[in-house]
Design a protein around this nucleic acid. Structure first.
Lengths: 190, 190
DNA sequence: AGGAAATGAATGAACGTTCATTCCGTTAAT
DNA sequence: ATTAACGGAATGAACGTTCATTCATTTCCT
């Protein structure tokens, strides 16, 4: 196993455990066992448990932000921009199974350093500016953008949890239905 | 302070701490300090930390379920039933500040005993039967009831977090707007 | 005074972290 | 081609700390 693989292995194991059990209920030996390394090995790659969780947090928040920003259809309709964001959320979740839930679960945690908080704020700003633009055009419902983000984000995460738990079959039809539901929750019905 | 008050005091303090920090990051001495009692006193009222958290969980899940069931307008329209549920969520949150978030945060936790899980399932069943009825009448969107619950529940909790954090002003106008948004997310737009 | 309630220092288990040791791939010498 | 020496990577037992829990003692109330 290469060094890069081993580092990623530790990160992937830690991500899944942090997402499932939470930071505080996950022990370093647990991560080590799951990653098939000795407990001490983790400290060759990460200064300590908090550095590990912050590294993970920043990594995935940035990747998620980039996924939304990538080829964002600035010229097109608000509805199409919403579709792009929704697609990005699905794509990111498919490519990083536990990442969104991990982010959600720890985005207000006491151990986040200032860099992690900054990265998360940037993600929120991106969503906020989308909703603000949509409201200016009277296409998005007249609610605080914070609230609109909460609705979209809260509902989406809860749904992905059901999919992860196997209680919901992730077929395209379902996703279209959910996209429409969430669009109807944020759009203006004048 | 009466015995009943002391017990409630411990429960209220534990609730707030569990909601804010999570079960694993909350220590028993923390709860004791917050409740102005000695650490040992907690063990006069609760066998151990897990019994305490399960007692809290069952208490609040049952109260929440009762709040929804109380005066439920079975005879009236699905929209009015939805309004009742939404009002119940607001009422319950006003009367039990941290309770809904506590429930949310721990409803899939590893330390929940079978009684807690059963109580939570009953709450879900109540919501599920509301959505099922609404779908039969083609008033509710044709999505799995699990998904509809996730949307309503996920969005609502996320919004209450913003209110608790002071990032959203809880005025009646906002709540009406949110109720409409969530109704539009679950209703059928034929 | 007597008995129940409350206490918080003491305890042992479990945690994050360290570090003396082992392992293993590469290099160099024969 | 084989072997010896080297050094960074990996290890997991051991350390100090923190936690949940206990219990000998004190406090409170009747």
């Amino acid at each position: 196993m290469t060094i890069q693989n081993k580092r990623e292995n530790i990160m992937t194991s830690a991500l899944a455990l942090f997402a499932e059990r939470g930071f505080d209920a996950t022990t370093v030996p647990m991560i080590a066992t799951s990653a098939n390394v000795g407990a001490g090995t983790i400290y060759r790659y990460f200064e300590n448990k908090e550095v590990l969780v912050n590294t993970l947090f920043q990594d995935y928040v940035r990747t998620f932000t980039k996924t939304i920003e990538d080829q964002f259809p600035f010229q097109q309709s608000v509805r199409q921009q919403f579709h792009h964001i929704f697609k990005a959320m699905i794509l990111f979740t498919n490519q990083n199974e536990h990442a969104l839930y991990f982010i959600k679960k720890h985005s207000a945690a006491h151990f986040l350093d200032s860099q992690s908080q900054e990265d998360f704020t940037q993600l929120l700003n991106l969503l906020r500016s989308f909703f603000d633009t949509g409201k200016e055009q009277s296409i998005i419902r007249n609610l605080p953008s914070e609230a609109l983000i909460a609705i979209l984000y809260g509902a989406f995460i809860e749904l992905q949890n059901l999919v992860r738990a196997g209680e919901l079959q992730p077929d395209p039809e379902l996703f279209t239905g959910i996209e429409n539901s969430l669009w109807d929750s944020v759009r203006s019905h004048s």
